[in-house]
Each structure stands twice: as C-alpha cells, then as structure tokens.
C-alpha cells in the first residue's frame, strides 16, 4: 500500500487571518476548516469498502468499468501468506476467477458486467479529500486494535501524514 498527501490546508494562513481580526480560535473549531487530500494506491477493495463508510469525505476511485482490472494484482492477507495450504487455495481460486473474467471479456461481455466475478482483494487506487474532524474520527476508529489489519495500516498512514503536515493540530487536539 502507498499513501501520499497531495495537499493540506495551510493552517498558519487560517490562524494568521483570524489573529489579524483579533480572534484567537479554539483549536477544535479549526478541525472543520483544515482539509487533506490523499492519494491511496494498492490497497484492496475490502479496505476501501470500509473506508467509504466514513461519509464526510470525498472519494474518487479507479473504476473497474473501464480499466483493465486484471493488471492491478491482489492483496494477500498475512494470515493467508503464512499458511502454505491456505495460500495455495487462495491462488488457485484467484486463477479460476481471473480466467473466467478474461473469458467473459473475450466473449464480448462488457467489463462493467465481467467485473462481478472479481475478488474484493483486488488492488485499487483512489483520491480522498477529508477534513481534520472527519479524519480524526477515522483514525480513532480504524487504528483501534479490533480494527481489521489493512485499514489499520491505512489509518496509521493517514494519521502520520496529517500529523506531519499540521503537527499543531494533531498534537494539541487529537492526541490530547
């Protein structure tokens, strides 16, 4: 998985503009005004299905209607990768699924229909724009120990990048 921050709100510009008006804002109110845009690549659709349940965010994801889905590869969970018999079953299953997908496309079935057979482990790419309040909620929920391993990894990466971009906000509010 690869996560990249494309831009974030210039927090200093906002604080500076408010201070010029003699307003010293409660840092928590700034959570609504600070926005981050991320690129997320090579995580599974299992994880993006969980991610988009966080609705106060904007998502644009690679479409399987138009792209060649079979070029994207899949995510293999560590529990499967570490178990020889499970890994064999996983890989055999995937081979069958991809072969059926290719056969359907070759037979003239549109990609938007052939994709119904594709696994949710398939890798995907998306951009996500989210404000700090909503991101704080995602990080709080999805870095919890009971969260699923892949979205925990994603939430950890989002947290790290947001904190690096706007340390004042994350240190003063989120980690308090």
């Amino acid at each position: 998985m690869r996560v990249k921050l494309l831009y974030s709100t210039d927090l200093k510009a906002i604080v500076g503009a408010l201070e010029a008006k003699g307003v010293h804002p409660d840092p928590e109110t700034l959570l609504d005004h600070v926005v981050y845009m991320f690129e997320i690549e090579d995580c599974s659709r299992v994880t993006t299905h969980q991610l988009v349940r966080h609705r106060v965010a904007s998502y644009d994801q690679e479409s399987q209607r138009f792209s060649a889905a079979t070029k994207e590869g899949v995510v293999t969970p560590p529990s499967v990768a570490a178990n020889e018999a499970a890994l064999r079953a996983y890989e055999d299953g995937l081979k069958g699924v991809y072969a059926a997908y290719e056969k359907m496309v070759a037979a003239g079935v549109p990609k938007e229909d052939a994709r119904y057979i594709l696994p949710t482990s398939i890798k995907t790419k998306l951009v996500m724009t989210v404000n700090a309040r909503s991101l704080m909620h995602i990080v709080w929920q999805r870095t919890a120990l009971q969260a699923q391993w892949e979205i925990r990894e994603l939430a950890g990466a989002l947290h790290g990048l947001a904190k690096e971009a706007t340390p004042e906000l994350w240190t003063r509010i989120v980690e308090k």
Partner: peptide, 10 residues
C-alpha cells in the same frame, strides 16, 4: 477525474 478512468499512478 483521471483517477476514475486510469490505471496509472498519481
């Protein structure tokens, strides 16, 4: 927009 229709990296 391109993210939706491309398999390319960002």
């Amino acid at each position: 927009m391109r993210r939706c229709y491309s398999t390319k990296t960002i």
